[in-house]
Nucleic acid binder design. Structure first.
Lengths: 366, 366
DNA sequence: ACCCGCTTCTTCATCGATGAAGCACGCGAG
DNA sequence: CTCGCGTGCTTCATCGATGAAGAAGCGGGT
């Protein structure tokens, strides 16, 4: 009797050892009500003795068509996601929906190699997917759509774009970025600022050379979030009678303090110097505050700085910003996916409320 | 030709449509070098036309014996994990190892129902497991062990306990909690403190009534981390000639600021009032600082407070603490697991370095 | 003319379980 | 005595792919 040292014991082998059918062993583990308590005990004892690890979840999943996990794919991959508190909050929200349902959360790995990035989505062993914040033309989303699994999209692309991609009716959760952005910009304009500047994160997935971008480029952003926030700022500016073309808009790569600092430097070097900075995220704003400090500009005396998100760090920085219910967004997305999986009616795309939070980083211009 | 609206197209069907064998279609997707480019194109085109979602990763995983994901099971479940910055840092570390390897990260859901909590481990569709910080007798670990998958343990149980559980040689990553705890305590004693008190998180998985605990109870903790940190404090106290029995040790449930605040209140109510608080985590210390502020005690003038972990919040709080390389711990654990999966030599259990970080929350007693 | 080796595709068995349906038995009701 | 039904277990087919081994065609070396 050759003994493979490492091949795990199978259900069949337990069945043979006990002298019952495989199905009965299966039932002993998965449907205790289907056999007598005595036999079940005998089976479990034998299973223990043989070192049977329990029904292989992979095989069971194949047969059942369910694996008890939902996937989350994030534009920038895991390393970045864990560095950004807002991304973490979103994950926390999804988890808070998945956990009570007994569902695992599979974080889909990213990659700098486009093919591997897509393969990770194609190969994810999950019952459904949450795709968070990808560009309008990102093949990642296409890869998620072809899988034909229940799908929920967070933030971007927008519902109209999802329909165009052949996935109409896909549940979507986000906020009205344009209106929210207009609200912060309006706040600064109301304070009397007339020389605004913007520090933005990426407009496209592909790496770019950071720098100032004109209105045409702004409107061409494939990141709908970027596009809409910029549009919101512009709406407010126009409403206040400002010439948007005169507002310097810097755009860099990721949403990090480093990019924010570089961006602030860039726009503060324009003449006349802006009196207020609109940053597309709190992390960018954090960098902008550092730049201001380094340049010896007092905030808000010499320079007002506003962010976006209301990240956990914002209160500590005294940052004026827009609160998005990030965690709730994740929860809603996770719940929507679970609803789809349970064949419950899928919720319609919905924007969660965002609200202006005024703190100490903004004030009237000097 | 009946048309199941929702059953996905299978590889067999694509094969039939093209007029080739199933294996060839499989190769078209997974091993492009195994067939002519022309045929491959034809197959992919047909697949697209039929709406074939690509090889079912579940079925492929079953056949290959690999699913491309590693699992992480955490003592307290996901919701708690995402609330604790230290737990998030650990996850970030694991992710930073998994991602470059193209491996997904499955977060195993927790549950208040013990059976479901274990089932989540048994049913996790993964190639290997990281079990983080569970009690010495936690059946969760037993469930992980019986699965027979490559396994790595973080923090606790300790390697000797793992051997006793029938899993000797299991890679383990953690820090020398006892020595590290002795270092912080020694720091306070060196400053001249003679009236110490301790605020601890749980000693067992089961919920307890918070309160002061004696030395016997301390040594009986099934959380090795708790046990060893307390032992480390005691080592230092004894070395300084202090009677450990006279040191009030509060222990509550989770590692949260709320518990820390309650704990600080409790030990500060003892007479004579302690001049220094040793907290088993920075989150507990955060609560202790709040309690101190509420009681009108100046830190460190009236009360010194020390934490453990060096969480991201610690610098901002000016908290004296012990730095554990949490992220690196996660990375090492993830890497060890990937090594096991690749049949590379598994690293021996190792303690990563921890070091005392003195900030402004500690000073000489009044 | 023959053998070799490469490319390209096929055949066969198998990964490890579970749903659906079926059979045998015992028991209570009519 | 017989029918009906619930309990307890089995049989059969199937979930959707891939590894190993093999066969056909083809060009090149001798």
């Amino acid at each position: 009797m050759p003994h493979d040292r490492h091949r795990p014991v199978t259900l069949q082998e337990v069945a043979a050892a006990v002298g019952v059918s495989a199905k009965t062993v299966s039932n002993a583990f998965s449907r205790p009500d289907q056999l007598s308590a005595a036999l079940r005990e005998r089976i479990l004892a034998t299973a223990r003795r043989l070192g049977y690890p329990g029904p292989n979840p992979l095989a069971a999943g194949l047969r059942r068509g369910r694996v008890g996990a939902i996937g989350v794919a994030y534009d920038n991959g895991l390393s970045y996601a864990f560095d950004d508190p807002v991304a973490v909050a979103l994950l926390a929200g999804v988890a808070s929906a998945a956990e009570p349902a007994g569902s695992g959360l599979l974080l889909v790995p990213g990659s700098s190699d486009p093919a591997r990035r897509l393969a990770a989505v194609s190969d994810a062993v999950v019952d459904g997917l949450v795709v968070s914040s990808v560009g309008d033309d990102d093949p990642l989303l296409a890869a998620a759509i072809v899988r034909g699994l229940p799908l929920v999209v967070v933030d971007q692309p927008r519902p109209d774009r999802l329909a165009a991609l052949g996935a109409p009716g896909t549940p979507w959760v986000g906020v009205d970025d344009r209106a929210a952005a207009a609200a912060v910009a309006g706040h600064l304009l109301d304070l009397g600022h007339r020389r605004l500047a913007v520090v933005s994160f990426g407009m496209h997935r592909d790496p770019i050379t950071p720098g100032l971008v004109d209105e045409r480029a702004q409107a061409a952003a494939t990141y709908a979030v970027t596009r809409d926030r910029l549009a919101g700022y512009r709406d407010a500016a126009r409403r206040a009678g400002l010439d948007w073309a005169g507002v310097p808009v810097f755009h860099g790569g990721d949403s990090t303090p480093e990019v924010g600092e570089v961006g602030a430097d860039a726009v503060l070097a324009t003449d006349p110097r802006p009196t207020a900075l609109l940053c597309l995220s709190d992390r960018l704003a954090e960098g902008a505050l550092q730049a201001a400090a380094r340049l010896g500009l007092r905030v808000p005396g010499d320079l007002s700085v506003a962010g976006f998100d209301d990240a956990a760090t914002a209160p500590g920085l005294g940052l004026t910003t827009v609160r998005q219910p990030t965690r709730e967004k994740g929860r809603a997305a996770g719940q929507a996916l679970l609803d789809l999986l349970a064949a419950r009616p899928a919720p319609a795309p919905r924007s969660l409320p965002a609200e202006l939070v005024v703190r100490t980083s903004t004030g009237p211009p000097a």
